[in-house]
């Protein structure tokens, strides 16, 4: 283990949503660490709290429904949750950036790609203390950014509006916005979920190269274990608002420990064609009344008495491998 201060450290994060039916206890003690230049994956099914986690980091949880009820999020040792509201936009324009599933929603439809990219570049340079850069320079920098994402004919793309581009092209624009020079940590929330596999493949390869080149850290959020396997070094598996397992990505696929991870891996259809498993019995718990103890126990085949009573802490299984499951109590 390296001793330096991690780039991002989420500690025991609890988030709740207030709705008509009551209080949804969504995040239930999430712990995530991202070190510098590290590529980390966060995997889980719909509704497990992946997006809530990333929104907490960016401080864009929907108000007034959502409330952070516990925990800290340290960015380079400073707690984001206690920062003044006016500091947040600076952070987001400077060292932290994000790409989302739907690129059209993150791009402004009434400005050209060039205008938007230029704006972001200007702000990000201001953040670095650079001033008085000519429009032409910004334009060529913007074109360079686009070219790096594998965009053909960037000069022309700069003059187009987002709606004129295909989904893949839009996501490339978002990636080039997100990967400007000052960025230290990229949060990518299902960046290729809406794209075709051939386009996804191209974009992820490009993204990987860029992240590698610049030494940016990335938190890749995905429901696809395949993508995470290709792109990350370390992975967190999330279930019902808790991190159930974390380890080096290679190791997770070779030796999954947590019963949920094992079941999840089995449900993925294989190219080798050995049929499908039955899926995981039961369904994601209702966040209004999540199960006592381990949130997975009602669906778990190896559930024991203690699982119904106490929430398991992370138990180390050596080699940076942690599983939050009573089976590994030492």
């Amino acid at each position: 283990m390296r001793t330096q201060v991690p780039l991002l450290e989420i500690k025991n994060l609890h988030v709740q949503f207030k709705v008509f039916e009551g209080v949804l206890k969504v995040l239930n003690g999430v712990n995530i660490v991202i070190r510098e230049k590290e590529k980390v994956g966060l995997v889980g099914e719909t509704g497990c709290g992946k997006t809530t986690t990333i929104k907490s980091v960016l401080r864009i949880l929907p108000s007034p429904q959502a409330k952070i009820t516990g925990g800290q999020i340290f960015y380079r040792g400073r707690d984001i949750l206690t920062m003044q509201p006016r500091e947040i936009p600076g952070l987001r324009r400077g060292e932290l950036s994000a790409i989302f599933q739907d690129p059209l929603a993150s791009l402004n439809p009434v400005f050209t790609v060039g205008q938007q990219l230029g704006d972001i570049l200007k702000h990000s340079m201001k953040h670095q203390g650079v001033k008085g850069i000519s429009k032409k320079e910004i334009r060529s920098k913007a074109a360079d950014l686009l070219r790096e994402t594998g965009m053909p004919d960037p000069e022309r793309i700069l003059k187009t509006y987002p709606v004129q581009l295909s989904g893949g092209m839009r996501q490339r624009v978002c990636i080039s916005e997100a990967l400007r020079a000052t960025v230290k940590l990229l949060l990518a929330d299902e960046p290729t979920t809406n794209l075709d596999v051939t386009i996804q493949d191209q974009i992820l390869r490009r993204l990987d190269d860029l992240v590698e080149e610049r030494g940016t850290s990335i938190l890749l959020i995905s429901h696809s274990l395949g993508i995470v396997r290709d792109l990350t070094e370390r992975v967190y598996i999330m279930y019902a608002g808790t991190i159930v397992e974390t380890t080096r990505t290679r190791r997770l696929f070779e030796n999954p420990l947590h019963p949920y991870t094992k079941a999840l891996l089995k449900t993925i259809p294989k190219l080798t064609g050995k049929g499908l498993s039955e899926g995981i019995r039961g369904r994601i718990p209702n966040y209004l009344n999540p199960p006592q103890g381990c949130r997975f126990h009602p669906r778990c085949d190896s559930a024991m008495n203690i699982c119904r009573k106490e929430n398991p802490p992370g138990f180390s299984a050596g080699n940076d491998h942690v599983a939050a499951c009573w089976l590994f109590r030492g």
Partner: peptide, 17 residues
């Protein structure tokens, strides 16, 4: 091309791409 693009979860499948 399509087969080579899909993300898979085991080395066994990787061989088929």
């Amino acid at each position: 091309m399509l087969l080579s693009s899909i993300p898979v979860t085991s080395d066994e499948e990787e061989k088929l791409k």
